[in-house]
Simulated assay, not measured.
Amino acid sequence: MNGQTELEGIKSIRSGVLFEIITALLVGIGIIILLTSGVLTAGLSGSAVGAFSSIVGTLIGLIVLIIIGVVIGIVGLLRIRSGFNILKATRRDVGIGGTGVTLLLVGYILMVIGALLAIVFIGIPILFIGVILAVIGQILLGIGFYRIGEIYNVGLVKVGGILVILSILTDLLGFIGYILIYVGLGRVVSNLPMATPAQMQTYYPPLTPMPQPSTQAVQVSQVGQGVLRGDGYAQFTLYTTAQVTIVSASIEGTNLQATYINPIILQPGNNNIMAYFGNISNLTPGTTYIINLTINAQGNMMNIKVSVVYQP
């Protein structure tokens, strides 16, 4: 996967979080309407007709707000789950967040069914199961957010994930958590590199390659010493005797995979390359690391080792 796909995943989660914030606001407005407009007006009204009209108007307003809030909330959860699935496809260990959203949705459905069937005895256990699934889903979702904060080294997202977990105690904590997550994901979006469509396609060999020497004659080697910076970017120079394509890059001894490489297609001669590995805070400053490159040389795959010094 490429940097653009990873960026799309973060954007999808962020937009879903915004929907959840809007849902919480609508629910809060509904509660205010219930406590102020409906109850107080009904109690102070001088006539029974006026009291009844006020209550009906309040209930209609609440129903509209609840319907709008539920729809927005469901759309938000679906977008969050889609974002987690995209990040999971880029080998980010956040699949637990998508699982949490799925359990939340199933739990909500069972809670609605159980509430509707509460008049019958069977509705009570269905409602109970729905509540349990929703609580588990909320916890897993919070863990998923926390892992995003760890991967991209954003404290706001980690704190927000913890508050989302604690929202099983009070919805206010979840509301604050979603706000922190939204702000933190904005920082992730601004830090992730943008990949152009042309760069996205360069992961595939050119359809009409230029005439090259025989595959056996292709040589690729590092020139000088590479550098790995604290922001996750590695810079190094490769010399090649023919046009080749970088397929993937990973740091030896870790699970770090490059999500962005530029350029992908190397021309004969020296090529200055930049690769993005994300959060590398667990690496040791001053240590020399080996980047394993998989290179497509006219249909034949080559493994090239590149040394870089971690200089935060």
Rank of each mutant, 00 (worst) to 15 (best):
Q267C: 02
Y239H: 11
I265M: 11
V220I: 14
N262I: 13
T245F: 01
I162T: 09
N262W: 07
T202Y: 13
A217Y: 13
V183Y: 14
P268L: 08
Y260G: 00
L185Q: 12
K158A: 08
Y239A: 14
P205D: 14
Q257D: 06
S190M: 11
T196N: 12
G230W: 05
Y239L: 09
G184S: 10
A234C: 07
V220Y: 02
A249T: 03
P193G: 12
L163D: 03
G184C: 06
V227Y: 04
I168T: 14
L172T: 11
I162Y: 12
Q216L: 12
T237P: 00
I246D: 03
N255K: 08
N272S: 15
V218H: 11
L166K: 06
P193F: 13
A258C: 00
S167N: 10
Y182G: 00
P209K: 03
A198V: 15
Y276V: 10
V220G: 06
I165K: 09
G278F: 07
I168N: 08
M210P: 12
Q225I: 11
Q201D: 12
Y239F: 11
P213S: 13
P197Q: 13
L172R: 00
T254R: 09
I273A: 07
Q199Y: 10
G186N: 07
I246A: 02
P206H: 07
A275Q: 04
L180T: 05
Y203V: 14
S214P: 08
V247N: 09
Q219D: 12
A249S: 06
L238Q: 02
